[in-house]
């Protein structure tokens, strides 16, 4: 009766991880602040959400970093393993020139597709900390650096 039903098992655990926020990283002031392990930060270079979606070459690095992040959790570290999107860029603009569609719209669609694909692979990302560079609430802080009142 109990064969290896990977589809069922994988969907089940991806749902549980999401609901229980299993991979949420904790800052010292946020609960549970006691018994937090040593901080360890594992990061992937965030992807540009292209219209073509992911192919099997893209997740190679993400799988490696995910193995390492999970290993560090087993060792008791408080692991920060986030993911986001480098979502400004030329391809979206060229697509906009060709089709007239607003790059924000196609970018949004591409991100949704990326997220769906990434979720299927079972990464232990803390998605609550997601960053999108095209989000005004993110990029307004760039000014802190590039137009820092240095004089």
């Amino acid at each position: 009766m109990s064969k290896y039903h990977f589809n069922k098992i994988e969907a089940k655990w991806q749902k549980i991880w999401r609901e229980r926020k299993t991979f949420k990283a904790h800052n010292p002031s946020s609960p549970p602040s006691e018994g937090l392990g040593e901080a360890y930060y594992v990061l992937d270079m965030f992807p540009y959400p292209s219209g073509a979606g992911l192919h099997v070459g893209h997740p190679l690095g993400y799988i490696a970093s995910d193995i390492y992040a999970r290993y560090k959790r087993h060792q008791g570290f408080n692991v920060l393993h986030p993911q986001g999107y480098d979502s400004f860029g030329l391809p979206a603009e060229q697509y906009a020139i060709q089709t007239g569609q607003h790059p924000a719209k196609t970018t949004e669609e591409n991100i949704a597709r990326y997220r769906e694909q990434l979720d299927k692979i079972g990464f232990s990302f803390d998605w609550s900390r997601e960053v999108r560079t095209s989000n005004p609430e993110y990029y307004k802080w760039t000014k802190t650096v590039d137009f820092h009142p240095a004089f």
Partner: peptide, 13 residues
């Protein structure tokens, strides 16, 4: 945007 994004993740969402 990609030169400092890794600091943004440090702050909870």
């Amino acid at each position: 945007g990609s030169s400092w994004y890794f600091f943004r993740y440090m702050e909870p969402g």
